[in-house]
Each structure stands twice: as structure tokens, then as C-alpha cells.
Nucleic acid binder design. Structure first.
Length: 427
RNA sequence: GCGGAGAUCGCAUAGCCUGGUAUUGCGGUGGACUUGAAAUCCACUGUCCCUCGGACACGGGAGUUCGAAUCUCUCUCUCCGCGCCA
């Protein structure tokens, strides 16, 4: 959510940003208009309250001095004031709620470097890493590999849970665990603190971190309790400091979170989504930084560098992409994606997303830090380290051998009990 | 799940019974004093509208009242005891 100061004093900035994104200005104008109406209504209501307070004080005085006649007289004068106040109050509340529900739907201001483009075709390459693997045989898709090695059981998962769930078996399951441990250790060495979050959140906290439309398309609601399954540990870890004032000496707060992530994936279908690439539940290791506003762009580069170093060490071929205006979404001001090369698909596909959300989430969550001039919003950043299901796909496809086995990345061998290749599961 | 006690400004704390301007300490910021610092002293230190100023804020919501931190109802959370349990 953008701060109200921006709408009042620098609406031109928001309009220019909307132009870049190619969206109309009508919501901006409505917010500004509703704000004016709200302030007028607020003043009117406060004036009535002031009258009431004065009267209440006079009654207290009169009673203290035993002047019953005077207190009765004032009492009669303000008899109907209560009703007037509550109706004015209700009007002001309504205007404020309207203003902010619109304001919640206005996206964050973009960083000036974000490339302009209509959709993902407008994304630009930031850098290219590793070597494209050269096979002297026809490489298999990850779907073929998991089937021939019996590493994933989709049918039985569908039987007991539904489509897009999976059982992970044998050496591939062990590799998944190795990825978790490796990634957490990697980030611990860079000053992050390991945090395991709750995997359900209440509505109020959740509205602070995400696009409102996600409630319809992404998150699972829990019946009968008013909770939502988290779509990523970004959400609980970012909302962790909701409604708090943080001492500046505590910043930056750097966390590495691991959690299962739950996504409804409404509307997703098609051949490319078979297997474990797009699923309802996966595990993700996430980097979170809660930062002083002056430092957030530096931290954004740091998060990207962590990803690059981590994925370089895995020995995979991938590219870093600058997300363009049309592909950005509501919350981030700037976003990098890592896209891994999938020989089976003959394409780069998204494995990591690295965002600076500036003060957008912090404004909604009322997460502030103390300054000499008052309290100001912090900045929040998040980046995937590893989403294990997708990392497994990339490793399987890039590290496959002609006989259909898969070479374990060197940095993971020690987490696999010294095993250098994944063996098939025998049932 | 049952019974009891609680939630007050960044932290701590008084006020609640008996309704009438939110107390004090710590921490923080600015200033005075100082060669500098410590100590001491003064001011400021929740949010909103903002112009002097005003309104709001005592976990959330509702009610009673001219007036609610204070009384009533309700919800949430925390702590203690009991029960259940990986």
C-alpha cells in the first residue's frame, strides 16, 4: 500500500508509474477524492466531539461545585449530541474504508530501472550463468526420469489428495532434504538466521503481505477456522513484525525460512504443468530481509548475489531476468527471476524470484522503525533460495546420464552420505 | 475442553474496587553545562486532521452514560492449575 502522503503531495509520481505499467489513473483520482471527503467528514465529526467534551467538563465542574441547576441545563443542551456524533462517525469510517480498499489495489511504485514491457516477453536478460549441458544422447524430460526411476508417485497422491500432489520417494526424496540442508547452511554462513514459521495465518496479517486477489486464486482457506495456508514462508516471516516499532539498531533483520508452501493454482493446466513442476504443495527455502529504507536496494543486490552463488555451486545453467513493468505484479518495486535451463523443454523456466517490496508491505502491516523525527516504515525484501521441487527438476534434467540416472551436484554429495548418483527406487 | 488471573505509549509501571484531562521510571531525540565525556538539569518522545488548535488512543468490537482505562456484554491472545495429547 502506498503512503497517503504520496497521493496528497506527489500524485504525479503515481500517475507516471501507472503510465509505465499501462493502467488507467481512475483509481488514483478516486483515492484522492475520497481522502478529501473523509477529511471534511472527520473535521465535522471532531468538532461535534469537541462540543461534547467541553460540555462534559462543564458538567463535571458544576457537579463539583454543587450547582445542580447548571449541570441539568447543560445536560439538556447536549442530549442529542451522541446520536449526531455516531452518525458522523459512521460516515467518516465508511469514507476511510472506501479510500483504503481502493488504495490496497493500487500497485507499488516501480524502480526507475524496471524495463517497460506489456508482458513476460518484455523481460530482459540480466546475466547468464553456467554452461549449457551438451548431451551425446537424446535427453529425457523430468517426467520420463521420475517415471522410469519410480521417484515420484503422482497417481497414488491423486487418489488420496487430488491432482498436483505427489509422493517423493527414495533417492530423490533424500536429495530434496539435502537441498534444504545445503541451502540453510549456505545462508547461515552469510549471516542469516534460520526461522521456521507457522504455515497458517489469519486474514488480517495475510492482507498485509499479498495482493488481495490471491485470496481467490492462490491461498487455501481452512474451514471452519478463519485461517489460510501460507503460499510461501515470505508471508509469515514478513508479517512477523506486524504492528511493531523496531529499534534501528536491530536492522537489518535477515532470515532464512523453510516451509511447505500451499497453492491452489486455480486456472493452471496443460502439458507443461505435468509432473512436479507446478504443484499444490512444495518446500521452499526463502531469504527475507527487513531493512532500513536507505539500504534496501543494496540488500536486493545482495539477495540476488546469494542466489547466484548458491546456484553456481549447484553447477546448473540458468539466466537472471529483469522483470518488466507488465509482468511485475502488485507488491514488488523491482524483481529478478532466475530461470533454469530445462533441456527437456528446450527453454529457461522460473526457479527463483527475488523482490524488493520497499515500504509497500510495511505500510499495510504498520511495521516501522524509530527515527529522531518519528516512526517510519521499514522496507521488506524476499527472495527464493531454492524451491525444492523445481530445483529437483532442473537437476534431473541437466545432470541426467544416458542410462537415465542422475548425477548428484558435488556440493550435495556430503549431504547424501557420499552418494554421487541417484539410484532408481525399486517399488 | 474446564477453572482462575491478566493485556495500559518502544520497554516497564500507576490508575480500575468508588466513572470526570493517562501516572511515573527506563530507553530515545534535541538543548544547557563541559576542552571532550560522564553526571546533572530542561524540553520533546503513540496515531490522525492539522493553523493556533482539536480529535482519537489503555488487546479488538459492541453497550450503558452528558462523560468509560474504570461499569456491562462479546471476541482474541497471554499466564497459572486440571484434562487430553505427538
Amino acid at each position: 500500500m502506498l503512503s497517503m502522503e504520496l497521493f496528497r503531495n506527489e500524485a504525479g509520481k503515481i500517475r507516471a508509474d501507472h503510465d509505465k505499467r499501462g493502467i488507467p489513473h481512475d483509481k488514483i483520482d478516486q483515492v484522492i477524492d475520497l481522502d478529501k471527503q473523509w477529511r471534511t467528514a472527520l473535521k465535522e465529526m471532531e468538532e461535534s466531539r469537541r462540543e461534547r467534551n467541553i460540555a462534559a467538563r462543564e458538567i463535571a465542574d458544576a457537579k463539583k461545585s454543587g450547582d445542580k441547576e447548571r449541570s441539568d441545563r447543560i445536560l439538556a443542551q447536549v442530549k442529542d449530541l451522541g446520536d449526531r456524533i455516531s452518525s458522523l462517525d459512521e460516515k467518516a469510517d465508511q469514507l476511510l474504508a472506501q479510500r483504503d480498499s481502493l488504495r490496497m489495489r493500487i500497485p507499488n511504485l516501480l524502480h526507475e530501472s524496471v524495463p517497460v514491457g506489456e508482458d513476460e516477453a518484455g523481460n530482459t536478460q540480466h546475466s547468464l550463468h553456467g554452461e549449457k549441458p551438451n548431451f551425446d544422447f537424446e535427453p529425457r524430460t523430468h517426467n520420463e526420469l521420475i517415471e522410469m526411476n519410480k521417484w515420484v508417485d503422482l497417481e497414488r497422491a491423486a487418489k488420496i489428495a487430488g491432482s498436483r500432489f505427489f509422493f517423493l520417494k527414495g533417492d530423490l526424496a533424500r536429495l530434496e532434504m539435502a537441498l534444504q540442508t545445503y541451502s540453510v547452511d549456505f545462508l547461515l554462513a552469510r549471516g542469516f538466521t534460520f526461522v521456521q514459521p507457522p504455515v497458517m495465518m489469519n486474514r488480517q496479517a495475510y492482507e498485509g503481505v499479498t495482493d488481495l486477489s490471491d485470496f481467490e486464486t492462490v491461498m487455501y482457506g481452512i474451514t471452519p477456522d478463519p485461517l489460510y495456508m501460507i503460499a510461501t514462508s515470505e508471508h509469515p516471516l514478513t508479517a512477523m513484525y506486524m504492528d511493531e516499532v523496531i529499534e534501528p539498531s536491530q536492522l537489518p533483520i535477515k532470515m532464512v525460512g523453510v516451509s511447505p508452501c500451499f497453492r491452489r493454482e486455480v486456472g493452471a493446466h496443460g502439458l507443461s504443468d505435468r509432473g512436479i513442476w507446478r504443484v499444490h504443495q512444495f518446500t521452499k527455502i526463502e531469504q527475507i530481509v527487513i531493512s532500513h529504507p536507505d539500504d534496501s536496494w543494496g540488500h536486493h543486490e545482495e539477495l540476488l548475489q546469494n542466489c547466484v552463488d548458491l546456484w553456481d555451486e549447484l553447477g546448473l545453467h540458468y539466466e537472471v531476468v529483469n522483470i518488466c513493468t507488465g509482468d511485475m505484479g502488485t507488491v514488488a518495486a523491482r524483481k529478478y527471476d532466475l530461470e533454469a535451463w530445462l533441456p527437456g523443454a528446450n527453454a529457461f523456466k522460473e526457479i527463483v524470484s527475488c523482490s524488493n517490496c520497499t515500504d509497500y508491505q510495511a505500510n499495510r502491516l504498520r511495521m516501522r522503525y524509530r527515527t529522531s523525527g518519528g516512526n517510519a516504515a521499514v522496507h521488506t525484501l524476499n527472495s527464493t533460495a531454492v524451491a525444492t521441487s523445481r530445483a529437483l527438476v532442473a537437476i534431473m534434467e541437466q545432470n541426467q546420464t544416458e542410462d537415465g540416472r542422475v548425477k548428484v551436484p558435488d556440493c550435495l554429495v556430503s549431504f547424501m552420505g557420499g552418494k554421487t548418483h541417484l539410484e532408481p527406487c525399486n517399488w
